[in-house]
Amino acid sequence: MYNEMSDLSVRVAKTDISSDAAEKLQYKIIVEQLDFFYGDIQALFDISMNIEQNRVTALIGPSGCGKSTFIRTLNRMNETIPGTRMEGKVLLDGCDIYQDFDDPSQIRTRVGMVFQKSNPFPKSVFENVAYGLRVNGIKDRNLIAEVVEESLKRAALWDEVKDKLDNSAFTFSGGQQQRLCIARALAIRPEVILMDEPASALDPISTAKIEDLIGELRQHYTIVIVTHNMQQAARVSDHTAFFYEGKLIEDGPTKEIFTRPKKKKTEDYITGRFG
């Protein structure tokens, strides 16, 4: 199950890029010369990377390589950690998310996030999904109910919870909770979804469900996923970026990264020589 490279090649084929002009339009996020610091410690070094629209981009690399830090710069989540500092640019549809928006919460409604450990609020299923709507000023009850249903359906959770919308989120399994967190992120209708190791705490079946879901979601969203699991990256992503010690070593179509890596470090990592 974990070595379906043949399946991978089918998916990768879709991402082949034809012309330079199309390429420019396709980029949802453009990162330019990004440096990031925790206090005096530099965590990211001069990262430049393009993230394609409606594609799944996987970030791989050993623990502590900066991939989680990187993903959190894409929706300004790192700002919630005191003592951090960044330099460089992150452009979302050409707008600098650090310069062109006064309020970081505006970015986060366009760039949603799913975390490593499922973190539902101690509220009902319905209220979990409705939360993002409520804090962003949506009051129309019918609209909220509509969007909650739509989001749960998109997260492939509706059939399991439709009769239990008032139950506490904690009464569901870990995998369901994680899909609830995905539904919650979808409810504010983001354009980009960041996933920070969304399946690392789940069993293989729940993991497979999440991966299937990612496959579905890529039609509507631009997805960036951090993963420790290289098979997962190979299975779900169109584009892969390899991080090592805070630097972007190499990125490209997933198929190329996994079959013909250009850099020695990448090859060593994906063949399991370190990491």
Binding site: S105, F115, K117, G132, A185
Partner: peptide, 27 residues
């Protein structure tokens, strides 16, 4: 109140006030 809950609210576009009043305080 776990940091994960604050992060969840922040990532959904809640500002500091909303994170405190709608997530941390009820919890």
């Amino acid at each position: 109140v776990p940091r994960a809950l604050r992060d969840a609210a922040t990532a959904l576009g809640a500002n500091t006030w909303q994170v405190s009043l709608t997530t941390v305080l009820p919890a």
